[in-house]
């Protein structure tokens, strides 16, 4: 396949979360989500308790994918920024590198200009953190890769049996 699985390591996530926290503070946003283009949520920061972030991540990725197709049809390689304006809350979506999307949810305490400025900066930071060099550096660490296969299979079988057995 053309693309590998997206793998995030602990060292990366600390840096990513640091960058997202700075973005929330600087841009005075409500919350931010980092999502991969396939619709998986990577991480989130801010007031996300009341949000269904899993669904939001899938829909953001879907929205971005359809916009990219629209771009292609009108002869653009990609629309790298999307903005949805609501009555109270607004969403600003930026492309980060090749594989991830940064969504900033904000209200009228701040302005689109501020969000755009800091989102662009953060997007560049995140691109660097997610880059291959960092990934390889993190991969050199053995942590998290010590599990063995046979135990995984047994554990998997029993979990799937539990969850997918016919419910009453």
């Amino acid at each position: 396949m053309k693309q590998e699985d997206l793998v995030i390591y602990e060292e990366q996530i600390e840096k990513i979360e640091g960058a997202l926290k700075r973005l929330i503070k600087d841009a005075q946003a409500k919350c931010v989500l980092l999502v991969d283009k396939d619709g998986h949520l990577i991480t989130r920061q801010g007031f996300t308790q009341s949000l269904d972030t899993t669904a939001l991540a899938a829909l953001l990725a879907g929205s971005f994918a359809s916009t990219r197709e629209i771009a292609r049809l009108v002869g653009e390689p990609e629309f790298s920024v999307l903005f949805h304006q609501g009555k109270k809350d607004h969403i600003h979506i930026t492309l980060v590198g090749e594989r991830t999307i940064l969504a900033v949810i904000f209200d009228d305490r701040t302005t689109i200009g501020m969000v755009r400025l800091y989102a662009k900066e953060t997007s560049e930071d995140l691109e660097r953190i997610l880059s291959l060099a960092h990934r390889e550096e993190a991969m050199a660490k053995p942590e998290g890769k010590t599990d063995r296969g046979s135990e995984f299979s047994t554990s998997l079988e029993s979990r799937l049996d539990d969850i997918f057995s016919e419910q009453p």
Binding site: V7, I13, I42, T43
Partner: peptide, 9 residues
């Protein structure tokens, strides 16, 4: 592709 997050396991 699958997303595998070692930080959050």
């Amino acid at each position: 592709m699958a997303s595998i997050n070692y930080a959050f396991k």
